[in-house]
Amino acid sequence: MDLADVSIETVNRASAEDASAVSALAEAAAGVDGASPLSEQSRLELRHGAPAAREVLARDGGTIVGFAHLDGSDPVDGPSAELFVAPHARGAGLGRALLEALAAEAARIDADGRLRVWAHGKLPAAERLAAALGFTAFRELWQMRRAGTPVPAPDLPTGVRLRTFRPGVDDAAWLALNAKAFAHHPEQGAWTADDLGRRFAEPWFDPAGFFLAEDTGTGELLGFHWTKTHPATADSGPLGEVYVVGVDPAAQGRGLGALLTAVGLRHLAERTVEGRPLAETLLYVDADNEAAVKVYTRLGFRVHTVDVMYRR
Rank of each mutant, 00 (worst) to 15 (best):
W118I: 08
K122H: 15
L259G: 04
R302N: 05
H267R: 08
A119Q: 09
W191Y: 10
L256H: 07
S236G: 03
S42V: 06
P75L: 11
A26E: 01
S39I: 06
Y296W: 11
I8N: 02
A176Y: 08
F165N: 03
W204I: 03
V273S: 01
A97T: 09
E17G: 10
L94I: 09
W142D: 02
A153M: 13
G197C: 07
A50R: 12
R96L: 11
Q143P: 02
F182T: 04
G159R: 09
P150H: 01
L222Q: 10
G223F: 05
H69S: 14
R108A: 15
W204S: 04
K294V: 15
G240Q: 02
E100L: 15
Q188S: 03
A19G: 14
A153D: 14
L175F: 02
R146L: 01
D206K: 07
F205A: 14
G275E: 03
S15R: 10
P231H: 04
T158N: 10
V295C: 13
L268V: 07
G168A: 02
P87H: 05
A153Q: 14
G49A: 10
E82R: 07
A250D: 14
A287P: 00
L133C: 08
G31H: 10
S23Q: 12
L162M: 10
F84T: 00
A81K: 08
R163S: 04
L268P: 04
V56Q: 02
L265E: 00
S36P: 11
E220W: 02
P37L: 08
F165G: 02
E241C: 11
D5L: 15
V242L: 11
P154G: 12
E82M: 07
A153C: 10
L83D: 02
P207V: 09
A201S: 11
G31N: 03
A58P: 01
G91W: 10
E9M: 12
L265N: 00
A132S: 15
H88T: 15
V242A: 12
D248I: 06
V160R: 09
A26L: 04
L57Q: 01
H184F: 12
R128L: 14
L221K: 05
A4N: 14
L25Y: 04
R116V: 09
L83P: 01
A52H: 13
L196H: 03
D171I: 06
M309K: 13
A181E: 03
V32D: 12
A269Y: 01
